[in-house]
Each structure stands twice: as structure tokens, then as C-alpha cells.
Write a protein that binds this DNA or RNA. Structure first.
Lengths: 342, 342
DNA sequence: CTGAAAGCGCTTACAG
DNA sequence: CTGAAAGCGCTTACAG
């Protein structure tokens, strides 16, 4: 009925519940009721109020709602390292799920620094967020118990919870390694090498253990899996590839701890005039673009990053909203994407 | 002096200015003063208060500060499409600069949808953010003037501002195309093709215009630049590469509108037994990983994504804090990274 | 079902 | 320099 009769250029700053109440001819609290418990209000009153809100372009002030209601629709996302494309996908899943549930997410990049992580956690405390998703730099930052003491919930992301009274969402690297290995075994390979990054990487270690476990299952000697460690890059992979051809000619297949390494191994193999997968089969890890773009597309273990983002929000919101919430440590299962390299 | 004497397990929720004041033996307002105008407080009082804050693990409530002070340290970042790695780098620059300046950023992914963009802008209004960085889906969403009417500042990202009374940070695609072309000209090429994605892409059109302009500068006929349009992928690039070899054998160099296309063109060329760059020189665009990982590393036009993120925050915060702020439309200049393909 | 009142935790003039 | 008071915009018992 009423087209927007708002005088153009009107200063909207400060349209308040009181203004709406006045225009609708009801009380302050009634306006609040149509916002928060519409069922307690007559259909008729509700319409009047809603029309007034429309005409005044009223937008409730979240800070005030939070302050008086005690509740907050604010979530924090603290990422270990925004440079890693892995976290882009995670962030996308987080944002999708959070905004679908009516929450807003504050983004922080710890960039590998415990200090930045601590500052992020502090800022989140100031904003009285109701929950935080944390892919931690440090094992158990002191900000975590503080957040909890303040009533905020914390879910660990890409890391198993350090204690059973926290939720977490992580990936089963052991299983991923095992998948890669048993895939190669099913293709008839028995002499397999593992190409890895620096030895201290938790994930790479777990993947190697998985490979060995699958070897055992297949009746092979796990100690026959030769490990080549190189810098985690295409160049490192090329070096590993050359070393394998030279030092371990009996090897017929390779599992690599990531796709950059696998890409390098393949290139070195092809450049030596050998065939992939006939002379050397290759499986990578992460299933990033580079694996499918390789000259011979590379099989790779894929982690459900987007889905992990969604799941972590689901757990967090359940912990926030559901009284009967039980903590869960989700462990996602990576899957092998088979391509022509194996 | 005092180690943390806080009884462990104390419920921190609700440590308030009043509590701090009581413990320090000062007034409510004095505590606020040491927080907001420390200069108006005696050194001695300040110390007493700060000690009390420490002991109580006091964290000021941002919602309350915002509500009473009117100021807000909240910023919004609304991205056109979080799937695009371009925006990951931008987001990283944004987060770095914002958190260095003491602001917190709320992240939204419009995912190409005008509807999601509108909802994000609405949520940002509810939170009374003081500024928004927007890489817009729609030309001028109605949420933008609304935010402004409410007192929030808006800076456009990856798009020139639609009006002179807004700041914006964008990239000069025309210049990028021209750089690629004049680089090829300096290498002696006069017969150049352009490989592009679908014709409606604003950026690709601008890049092509840049290529043509540089041709003119070099004394060439811009109409001699043959355009091949293919799907924007490695596969599309391969198709374009084969077409060039077959239909335009006189061409000695190619500018591609992105690196996926360039990668495909190179692969098709090598597979046909031709040499890169001897038989065909190639320049890509975006300088993403794939270009440097190609068999013959591909020259590419690089956009300063991270820096754009930082710059947009700089403009936004200036607009927020500086009374004398003058609107600026920043246009970043992409640079050519020369590699072996040209 | 609706209204009047108190209060959320802070900041900011305004007096002393 | 410090304190007492009002107010930011809302929500939630509590009466009617």
C-alpha cells in the first residue's frame, strides 16, 4: 500500500525501537516482542509494527541486543595460515554454514604466530563471541580456557581436541596413507617408496605410518618402504624422482605426501624417458589443481575441506544452542581419487 | 608482585568495570578513563586500576563500548566469490592490515549471488560496522546507500567505484594486456593472437583492448590480433592451441587471458612437437602457481592481490578516522613476470 | 495480549 | 584529577 514514504536523504542513523513503537502506536516492549517472540503478539499488532519498521527502514542494533539479551550471534574463525589454499576451502564451508544458520563470522589469520593467535583470541573475548573455531598454532593456547571461562565455546579445526571435553574436526592422515598404499597394492605393486617433506610434519608422519600399516595388511614388510625426504615443492619432487630412478630402481610405485612432490616426481620420471604409470606409478596427496593438470593426471588423496568447514560449524552451533550437547571428535576420512598415474 | 591470585575455575563471565573500580578503590568512570584517555589519570591511579584489571582478568565488553561510545572497531568484508584464489590473497591483505590497525573483520561470501550479497550487507548494518569492503556482485546494491545513510563507509574492491564519492581499489586490466603485448613486441613478435574466455567478461575485454592498444603503439594493425575464444580452462587452452597451429600458422606469439588457458596452449604446442618459445611464445595472466609449474615456465601478468587487500583497508580506515578524507579510486598496475615461455 | 520499569556494561559530559 | 549521573538501544521479567 504505502510506497516508501521516507524522505530521501533522511539520516537513518538512530532509527530505534522507540521510533517504531511511536509510529505503530504501541509500546516499546511490544516492538521487541514482534522481533523476538512474534507468537506472543496479535497478528494485527504485528502487522502494524512490521509496517512501521519497513517505513522507517529500521535495523535492530545487534550490540544493544547482545548487551541486554546476553546472547550473541557472533562466531570467530582463527586460521593457522591463510596462505594455505586448504584453509580457503575450509573458510568457505564455515562461512556458508554459519550464515545459513544466522551467525556472523569474524576472521583472523594467525599466520603461524602464537602471538597473533593470542591477540585474535583476546579480540574474540572482547566481542563476547558465543563460539570460536580454532586451527591452533600452539597446543593449548591460554586464550582457550579463558574463552571458555567467559562462556564461549571452542571447537578445534584440523587438529584433534587436546582433551575429551572439546569438539574437534580433523582428518585421518593414517587412513589416507593406507588408502594410497592399498590402491597401489591392488594394482599389483609390492615395491613402493614414500616421498615426504621434512620429518617433523605431523601429517606426513601419520601418512607414512598409514602406508606402512597397509603394507603389513598386504603381507609386505613395512620396512621395505623406502622413504625419500625432500623439500616440499615441485623441485623437491624432481630431486626425489631422480634419486628413486638412480638409487631404487626396483621400486615400481611411489606415494607422495603432497601433490607438489608428486608432480615433481612425475616430471623427473618422464624426463628420464620412463613411462608413468608403466615404469613408475604415482599417488599424490591433497588433490589440488596441480595433480589433475599434470601431463599424466595424478591420482591423489582428497580431503573434504569444504565439508570439514561445514561440520565444524555444525558442532560449534550445536554446542552453543543445544543443552544436551555431547562433545565429538570428528575424524574425516580422506578418499583416493584415481587417475592415470596409477 | 601478585601472581595471579584468581581462584581457579572462577566464572569470568561478567567481570565488569564496576568490579575493577571496587577492587581498585576508584570510581566507575575512572576505570573507563584509564581505558580511553589514560592521560587524564594519575600515574598512580592508573597503576592501581591496571593491577585490578589484571587480577580480575577483566576484558572490556565491546558491545557495551560500542553502544555507549558510538564508535565501532568492526569492519565487513564481502567477497564476490571465495572459490577464487584471487580473493584468498586479497583477504589475507585485508586481515593483516585490519588487525594491525586494531580492527576486526567480519567475513561474508556472496558466492556470486546478489541475494547473499544483500543479506551480508544487512547483517553488517545490524552490527553497526564502521566500514565495509565490497567486491560487488551487482552494480550498486541498495544495501550500499543504506549502509552509508547509517554512517558506515563503503570501499569498492576489485571494481572501480560507480561514483566519485566512493573509494575503490581495482586493477588496470588494460595496462596488463598492453604490458603483455609490448613485452612480446620487444622480443620481436609482430603476429600475435589473443586467447580469451567468454566474451562477456569485463576483465578479458579490457585486457584485449590493452593488447590492441600496445599493437598500435608498436606500429602494428590492431585488427591483426586474432582472438580465439574458448572455455576458461586448461582444456579450453589446449583446444585454442591446436586451433592456432592449424588455422593461424603465421602467429608467433600468444597472449592468454589467464594462466589456465596459457598452460593448455603450451601443452598443445609441445604435443604437436613444436617448441616454446621458439615456435610459439606464450604469455599468461594472473601469475598463479600453474604458470611457474608448466613444463616450460610461463611468463605471466601478475596482480598485486595481497597489496590490494592492504590498500583497501588503508583507504577504508582513512575514510573512517580522518575528517579530511578525500575519496580515491586506486588503480593498481599489474606487472609482467617474464619466464622462459617468451 | 500489552505496557512500564529495570538493567545489560560501558562512555561521556558535567560538577566538584 | 576524580566522582555521580545520564544515556546508548535493546530485552526481559513483572504487572495489569
Amino acid at each position: 500500500m504505502h510506497p516508501s514514504t521516507t524522505p530521501s536523504g533522511r539520516e537513518e542513523r538512530g532509527v530505534t525501537v522507540r521510533d517504531v513503537a511511536r509510529l505503530a502506536g504501541v509500546s516499546h516492549g511490544t516492538v521487541s516482542n514482534v522481533l523476538n517472540r512474534p507468537d506472543r503478539v496479535t497478528q494485527k499488532t504485528r502487522q502494524k509494527v512490521e509496517e512501521a519498521m519497513q517505513r522507517l527502514a529500521f535495523v535492530p542494533n545487534e550490540a544493544a541486543r547482545q548487551l541486554s539479551g546476553g546472547r550473541s550471534r557472533l562466531l570467530g574463525l582463527v586460521l593457522l595460515d591463510l596462505e594455505n589454499p586448504f584453509f580457503l576451502e575450509v573458510a568457505r564451508g564455515v562461512e556458508d554454514a554459519a550464515s545459513a544458520a544466522g551467525y556472523v563470522v569474524m576472521l583472523f589469520n594467525a599466520a603461524g604466530s602464537a602471538d597473533r593467535e593470542a591477540r585474535a583470541l583476546e579480540a574474540l573475548r572482547e566481542h563476547r563471541v558465543s563460539g570460536v573455531l580454532l586451527s591452533p598454532v600452539s597446543r593449548m593456547a591460554e586464550g582457550v580456557p579463558r574463552l571458555r571461562a567467559q562462556g564461549a565455546h571452542v571447537v578445534f579445526l584440523d587438529r584433534r581436541a587436546p582433551r575429551a571435553d572439546f569438539c574437534s574436526v580433523a582428518v585421518d592422515d593414517h587412513h589416507g596413507g593406507a588408502e594410497a598404499m592399498s590402491h597401489l597394492v591392488s594394482r599389483g605393486h609390492t615395491r613402493v617408496a614414500f616421498v615426504s617433506g621434512p620429518s617433523h610434519l605431523r601429517q606426513h608422519q601419520a601418512r607414512l605410518r598409514g602406508v606402512r600399516a597397509a603394507a603389513v595388511v598386504a603381507g609386505l614388510d613395512p620396512d621395505d618402504i623406502i622413504v625419500f625426504r625432500e623439500e616440499m615443492s615441485v623441485v623437491g619432487g624432481e630431486r626425489a624422482g631422480r634419486r628413486i630412478l638412480a638409487e631404487a630402481a626396483h621400486v615400481t610405485a611411489v606415494v607422495c605426501a603432497n601433490d607438489q612432490l608428486a608432480f615433481g616426481v612425475e616430471r623427473a620420471t618422464l624426463e628420464a624417458g620412463r613411462s608413468v604409470p608403466r615404469d613408475l606409478a604415482i599417488v599424490g596427496y591433497d588433490n589440488v589443481d596441480i595433480s589433475s593438470h599434470a601431463q599424466v593426471p595424478i591420482s591423489s588423496v582428497s580431503q573434504p575441506m569444504y565439508e570439514m568447514g561445514r561440520a565444524s560449524i555444525r558442532l560449534l552451533i550445536d554446542e552453543i544452542e543445544n543443552e544436551a550437547h555431547a562433545h565429538e571428535q570428528l575424524l574425516y576420512t580422506p578418499t583416493l581419487i584415481a587417475r592415470e598415474s596409477s
